[in-house]
Amino acid sequence: MIDFKNVVMEYPNGNVALKGINLHIDDGEFVFIVGQSGAGKTTLTKLLLCEEKASNGHIIVGNYDLSRIPNYKIPHYRRKLGMVFQDFRLLPNKTVYENVAFAMQIVGTPARKIRRRVPAILNTVNLSDKHNSFPDEISGGEQQRVALARALANNPDVIVADEPTGNIDPEMSLEIMNLLLKINKLGKTVIVVTHEKELVDYYQQRVVMIKEGVIVEDRVGGMFE
């Protein structure tokens, strides 16, 4: 469960990015957060990731109150989230397998468990045959699938995808979206932040539209208007 209650975010330079956001997302939901550049989507993502703290209001994610979370607990909270970025953020000197395994290594997963789980995740994102390739040897779509696999590695409750199709061609975009839906069907909450109208309209999921820091529309089966 994710709850934004009267969330205001004002940056030190005086820019008010979010002006009293109220948003409730249930476990297992699939939600598109849409809006034009500068609408406040990125700020919302940063707040969810605990990169920033809200100036006012409360953000509850599962058992965590992000407005009160102490710094030392942030890493543990982030393990409950799987993050996918527009620019993939893969480690160029590690293979596909190692990039996924790395996510598990850094949270201290035993090697035996890593050896068992990584091939299974790569199979979920249809990348079993690429496990020995380096990021620069595979396409943008495949790189995004690796990023998705890495986000799934620690079995998070929530997947947050920030413009996941921004750097890949339309055909691959559909594949990534289908994978996100598949992950959602497995019971994960999926939040996709995007400004791609066609994709949002095609999938007919819950759409939350932000404009100038305010939610102007929140509709299941919505369109990007």
């Binding site: 990731l49 030392y72 890493p75 543990h76 909270y77 982030r78 393990r79 989230l81 993050m83 953020r89 480690l91 790395f102 996510a103 850094i106 949270v107 201290g108 890495r150 590695a153 620690n154």
Partner: peptide, 12 residues
């Protein structure tokens, strides 16, 4: 940066 997003502790 990636390690932090994934949830690695500062000490790690």
């Amino acid at each position: 940066g990636i390690m932090r997003y994934i949830g690695a502790t500062k000490w790690f």
